[in-house]
Design a binder for these strands. Structure first.
Length: 495
RNA sequence: CGGGGCGUAGCACAGCCUGGUAGUGCGCACGGUUUGGGACCGUGAGGCCGCAAGUUCGAAUCUUGCCGCCCCGACCA
């Protein structure tokens, strides 16, 4: 028997690492800090991409692609942006290798030094706005609504698979607008799309909010985010949407002629989500038996496992199941019929649980005689036997479709209940220090100063995840300084 | 970059202290018995013991240097 997963309660990070490996999502690569995303993991990412991409397209965005390399001079232009990213950039200095004259192997050819170093993009604002300079002349060229799916590199000190890798996959939207208000509206719209995706597809409730100045994206006027609570009580920033003002338009000189024939700088936004969402998905729902996937993102929504003794039985079962498999597919349900002969049914049960397949159907000779199917739910680990007409399985399939919807809702509700049970209103500093050790979201008053924010971080490792958008203003006293505060903000320890 | 741990078969590890034929479990291949919650028996394949130098008749084992990975901190989507 294969080793059980580590328990969440005993060693959360080991549980996480093991689940990533054992569910066959990804593995560490030979390259430090970088991951190999395996087919099953990539299939989930592709489903995320598809859903998000459809939402981007539905709101008028188009995909394009910009280069991996950013000339150093581009990155330097926007001062805060440059400062924010400088310490985590991979730099290309040469363009050629040559045989080592002193021995084996290859060396960097010193004669092939680049005149200007190229940065491997940590984000693409600069390359993209350099291009936009030529794309935008008139108000008629606006808004310009572009997204790209790409990889980026941020040379992190310490990495964790999916959550923080040196190279990761993401999408970055970069839009240009004629007015400030339009850009602000876009920033909000995309934040809303991220929240809708997180909640509707990932079944992961999120808090939408504004970042404080110290947590803001380098070069942005305002950063909005969605924050989710993981099962170990830590927060995970799961998406960001930035209002960039005219900062990048100014430094790249992107001006357009408005309706009054006057030159104006364009207004910008950028927004992104990354393969970090894979980590969020794992940590939001999975249990000690393995991954739990929301049906909308599961590469396999239903797995069918035949239970048999002889090859003849298997042939009978396979034949009997043909209409059912056909109907499931016709209903748009992704189904895998695992009739492989080298693993036994019990092994398969455990394996598909580990991989988070939402619904498992077990069918043996007894079921065929009785006209039943064993239906097992991954989220609750419950089983029941349902009647089926194997030659006309439409009614049964409708029931499975319903069940998948029910599971999607149930795991969202479970995650929401967890978040509500782990969100605390805290009014005293003593209580704050005590609660932060236990984990969870803390809603507390803050005096609005960076000093207080830094002091709280220093003393408790908790950061202000965001100033929530949807909670009402209600004045109070800062939990740390006792000064006036207009509303509560969201504190947590974060990934 | 600090502190800790580890590099031996695809994976998990033992062997190292005290130098002398490279091992165990899982997985893999083949055969058989099994099959409603991770089956069992038998046979077999699979290794430059992280790399390099040194000590030695002889190094997985001792010495030195290097490289890599993981965990904990500082930095971060």
């Amino acid at each position: 028997m294969a080793k059980a997963l580590p328990k969440r309660s005993e060693n959360y990070s080991e549980w996480y690492n093991e689940i990533v490996k054992r569910a066959d999502l990804a593995e560490n690569s030979a390259v430090r800090g970088c991951m190999v995303i395996k087919p099953y993991g990539f299939a989930i990412w592709e489903k995320m991409q598809r859903a998000l991409d459809d939402m981007f397209k539905a709101t008028g965005h188009q995909n394009a692609y910009f280069p991996l390399f950013v000339p150093k001079s581009f990155l330097e232009k926007e001062e805060e942006h440059a400062e924010g990213f400088a310490k985590e950039c991979a730099v290309v200095t040469h363009y050629r290798l040559k045989a080592n004259p002193d021995g084996k192997g290859l060396i960097v050819d010193p004669d092939a030094k680049l005149e200007e170093e190229l940065i491997i993009r940590p984000t693409s604002e600069t390359v993209i706005w350099n291009a936009y300079k030529n794309w935008i002349q008139s108000w008629r060229d606006l808004p310009l609504l572009i997204n790209q799916w790409a990889n980026v590199v941020r040379w992190e000190m310490r990495t964790r698979i999916f959550l923080r890798t040196a190279e990761f996959l993401w999408q970055e939207g970069h839009t240009a607008h004629a007015t400030e208000q339009e850009a602000i509206d876009e920033t909000h719209q995309m934040l809303g799309i991220y929240a809708e995706f997180a909640e509707g597809w990932m079944a992961m409730p999120v808090v939408q909010g504004i970042k404080t100045e110290s947590e803001r994206f380098a070069g942005a006027e305002e950063t909005f985010c969605i924050e989710a609570l993981m099962q170990d009580g830590k927060a995970l920033q799961s998406g960001t949407s930035h209002f960039l003002g005219q900062n990048f338009a100014r430094v790249f000189d992107v001006q357009f002629v408005n309706k009054e024939n006057q030159l104006e700088y364009a207004w910008a936004t950028s927004w992104g989500v990354s393969t970090r969402l894979m980590g969020a998905l794992i940590m939001a729902h999975s249990d000690d038996n393995g991954l739990v996937l929301p049906p909308k993102l599961a590469p396999i929504q239903t797995v069918i496992i035949p239970i048999y003794r002889s090859p003849e039985d298997l042939a009978t079962i396979s034949k009997t199941l043909e209409p059912l498999i056909g109907q499931l597919k016709a209903a748009g349900i992704s189904v895998k019929y695992d009739d492989s002969d080298h693993q036994r049914s019990g092994w398969k049960f455990a394996e598909y649980e580990l991989r988070g397949v939402p619904v498992r159907l077990g069918i043996g000779m007894r079921d065929i005689e009785n006209g039943t199917v064993e239906v097992a739910r991954r989220d609750t680990l419950t089983k029941d036997s349902r009647p089926i007409d194997f030659s006309q399985p439409e009614a049964f399939v409708a029931g499975i479709k319903e069940l998948l919807d029910e599971i999607q809702d149930a795991i969202y509700q479970k995650a929401l209940d967890f978040r509500e049970a782990n969100t605390f209103l805290v009014d005293t500093w003593e209580e704050f220090k005590e609660q932060i050790e236990k984990g969870g979201f803390i809603m507390a008053h803050w005096d609005g100063t960076a000093e207080t924010e830094a002091a709280i971080k220093e003393e408790t490792k908790a950061t202000i995840r965001c100033i929530p958008l949807l909670s009402a203003d209600m004045a109070g006293k800062c939990v740390y300084s006792g000064r006036e505060s207009p509303k509560r903000v969201l504190f947590a320890r974060a990934y």
